[in-house]
């Protein structure tokens, strides 16, 4: 009995997440939006949770599994770097400089701004 209800919860939660994605895909196609459908789906699900129309417990059964194994879903895309080795070799210093400059400046700008705004430091 409990095994059946666990399975039902898994299927229902997966159906909710899938519906959010499908609705978003339709919206993106219909209005030719530049935002990725998956991110619109994220916002849609957040909106439904925040309004209380969907309870967190209704999406966590499959949601937590998807989040736990997240890396498995994009490791194959990363392996595609094998097709761009020549490009990486030719532009290694360019990439390193651009990315390191971005990381350092972001760390400094955001931490200084947050300190000025006293985020998390109010009485």
């Amino acid at each position: 009995m409990s095994r059946i209800s666990t399975l039902t919860k898994l299927i229902v939660s997966l159906a909710i997440i899938l519906s959010c994605l499908m609705v978003s895909k339709a919206l993106v196609a219909l209005f030719e939006l530049t935002i990725p459908a998956s991110v619109l789906g994220l916002l849609l699900l957040f909106f439904l949770l925040n309004r209380g129309w969907i309870k967190k417990e209704q999406v966590t059964p499959s949601g937590n599994i998807l989040l736990k194994y997240f890396p498995l879903f994009f490791i194959p895309s990363g392996v595609g770097i094998v097709e761009h080795i020549v490009l990486v070799q030719a532009n290694l210093y360019l990439i390193l400089t651009a990315v390191l400059a971005a990381t350092l400046s972001t760390l400094l700008v955001v931490s200084q701004l947050a300190s000025k705004l006293k985020v998390g430091q109010r009485d």
């Binding site: 997966l14 997440i17 899938l18 959010c20 994605l21 978003s24 990725p36 459908a37 998956s38 991110v39 789906g41 994220l42 916002l43 849609l44 699900l45 957040f46 949770l49 967190k56 999406v59 966590t60 499959s62 949601g63 937590n64 998807l66 989040l67 194994y69 997240f70 498995l72 879903f73 994009f74 490791i75 194959p76 895309s77």
Partner: peptide
């Protein structure tokens, strides 16, 4: 695996 990527992004709402 890769076809689950979009679903997992939606789950980031949690």
């Amino acid at each position: 695996f890769t076809s689950l990527l979009e679903l997992a992004i939606v789950a980031l709402a949690i």
